[in-house]
């Protein structure tokens, strides 16, 4: 049973359990088609990208509630600049990524420099960013319908970058957003396991005071964690806008909860100091498959919510027993 002691193994068992449900309730074989899996991967990618940033923050024993709102804000910015102002994507993408990172850094500053609780600081950012998204967009979806002064609409074409991001490659077998997620996961993985800052994140999450007294640059490390979380949220926001072909100020509503669920189901501890990107990937697959299975079987909304709640609790309980 030594195998079971590894958190990855536990997370995989939870995933396997969900897959077994899928094989059993395969919706007349729909579950066995690759397109089903491809679409699941596409759908979960945005959440999983958020999960990558969330993993960093949670490993430092923090939390970031603002990522959902940041998706909305960056989606609106991306659409506004690229569709309505018609700027080049080479200009727009860096600006939007910068905006997301800046929001993350603001939360990070509140938390590390001014010692606000992560929950409160990012809650404030969550509310603020949603407000900013609505203010910038005027409460309307920023789409290819451009409002003219006389109240009528001019319809423009969606920029090429949108089609590029929402496309699929490898003979239509994998979505670009999934590849973007894999890149994000790779970046987070390298940070956590190969870079000094990643080690510092684990140290801070494990014992912040001991880390500080060991000379770990606590403020800088937290800034990096929250800044990257904001950056990943901006990446997710761009993906979201590209897939919706518009910037919805309401986009990403309550996505932060799914992102947290993905991280926690994987087995990263909310108490900090333990976890990894591998776990988050498994967590994302677990949640993704769960939603997909419920969806292809056309399970009613009420049952879905109840089932999802039960499975989240069960998976986390299962993770917990490993300590004994």
């Amino acid at each position: 049973m030594k195998f079971l002691k590894k958190p990855e193994a536990r997370a995989l068992i939870a995933l396997a359990f969900v897959l077994i449900i899928g094989f059993t309730f395969n919706a007349d074989g729909a579950f066995f088609k690759w397109t089903t899996h491809r679409d699941m991967l596409r759908y979960i990618s945005v959440f999983a990208i958020l999960g990558c940033g969330m993993t960093l923050v949670i490993i430092t024993a923090g939390i970031d509630l603002s990522v959902g709102s940041l998706v909305g804000l960056t989606a609106v910015l991306f659409s506004l600049f690229s569709i309505q102002y018609g700027w080049s994507p080479w200009l727009v993408i860096p600006i939007v990524l910068l905006a997301g990172t800046a929001c993350g850094l603001i939360s990070g500053t509140l938390i590390s420099k001014w010692e606000m609780q992560p929950f409160i600081a990012t809650l404030a950012m969550m509310v603020f960013a949603r407000g900013a998204a609505k203010w910038i967009s005027g409460g309307q979806k920023v789409s290819t319908a451009v409002l003219q002064n006389d109240g009528s609409y001019k319809y423009v074409n969606v920029p090429e970058i949108y089609n590029f991001i929402s496309a699929k490659v490898l003979h239509n077998n994998i979505a670009i957003v999934t590849i973007i997620f894999i890149i994000c996961a790779g970046v987070a993985y390298i940070l956590l396991s190969k870079l000094r800052w990643g080690r510092y994140m684990f140290a801070i999450g494990g014992n912040e005071e001991a880390a500080r007294l060991s000379g770990v640059p606590v403020v800088m490390t937290k800034l990096i964690a929250y800044g990257l979380c904001g950056l990943f949220a901006a990446v997710a926001g761009i993906c979201q806008a590209a897939q919706e072909q518009q910037g919805d100020p309401e986009a990403g509503m309550s996505y932060e909860l799914t992102a947290i669920a993905i991280v926690v189901i994987g087995g990263t501890s909310l108490a900090g100091g333990r976890g990894g990107i591998g776990l988050t990937i498994i967590g994302a697959l677990t949640i993704g498959y769960l939603e997909k299975i419920l969806s292809i079987n056309a399970v009613g909304e009420a049952y879905r919510l109840m089932l999802t709640g039960v499975i989240i609790a069960a998976a986390v309980l299962f993770q917990k027993t490993r300590k004994k």
Binding site: A27, D28, A30, K33, T36, Y43, Q243, I296, A298, E301
Partner: peptide
């Protein structure tokens, strides 16, 4: 096939993918 998409576009897209698969 009928599903609740909660007025949301991404949700509708996800549900439609399932319908298409089936």
């Amino acid at each position: 096939f009928e599903a609740d998409m909660k007025w949301l576009e991404p949700q509708a897209r996800k549900e439609m993918e399932s319908a298409l698969a089936r």
